[in-house]
Amino acid sequence: MRRIKDTAERKRIQRLRALFKKAVRIVSLNNHWVETEHDDDQKFSFNVQRNVSFLVRTNRRKAGLLTSAEKTLIRIPHKFRTIPERKKLCSLFSKFRCFVGISPKLRARLVPLVRLLPLQPGRIVIRHGDFPMTVYFILVGELHMLRGKTGNEVVAVYGPGERVGGAELLENRERTRTFRTASNFIALRFDKKIN
């Protein structure tokens, strides 16, 4: 009877080890979601458990995701934000890939003008033929660019870190494509003011 228990326990331990190794392989292959801004003194080693805990540490976060406190801060009207909150938003925006090509001065000027826009899949964000008034800075999710007014053919896919709608706004011409959300979608929305 003892031998049977030992065999069953040994098989259970082997299955758990195999599962752990599989998890480590998956994390290693898919670590592109981990930010690369780690300290130089914290290096990878041959200790797998240490590497895994380093990669999935709770203070590391997926690029583009916002905490509830940051979402709340963005939703507060600009006139009610304190100076430290405005500075915090400027530093937060500097971390987003969609603002990388924008100068810090212009980014600071955009802070009071952008609004948080969460949408469900299947929503039309930009419609062909509309007058351009909005630019979207994508934080999370995908946006499909469709051909024509009512076309369902996907021409391109836009994702986190990209901007949509800026060209027509700058050129002051009507929209030439339709954009539809493909997944849960969060973006920062800049609306042009009409004089």
Rank of each mutant, 00 (worst) to 15 (best):
I138L: 14
I138S: 13
L139K: 05
L139F: 06
V140P: 07
G141H: 12
G141C: 14
E142M: 11
E142C: 12
H144T: 06
H144M: 08
M145Y: 04
L146W: 05
L146T: 09
G148D: 15
T150E: 08
T150R: 13
T150N: 14
T150S: 13
T150Y: 06
G151F: 01
G151Q: 01
N152G: 15
N152S: 15
N152E: 15
E153Y: 07
E153W: 01
E153S: 10
A156I: 01
A156Y: 04
V157T: 14
V157N: 03
Y158N: 04
Y158G: 02
G159F: 01
G159D: 00
P160Y: 00
G161N: 03
G161K: 06
E162S: 13
E162M: 15
R163P: 05
R163C: 13
R163I: 15
R163S: 13
V164Y: 04
G165L: 00
G165K: 00
G165M: 00
G165P: 00
G166M: 09
G166H: 12
G166S: 05
G166D: 08
A167K: 11
E168Y: 09
L169V: 06
L169I: 07
L169W: 01
L170G: 02
R173T: 15
R173C: 15
E174D: 15
E174K: 15
R175F: 04
T176V: 15
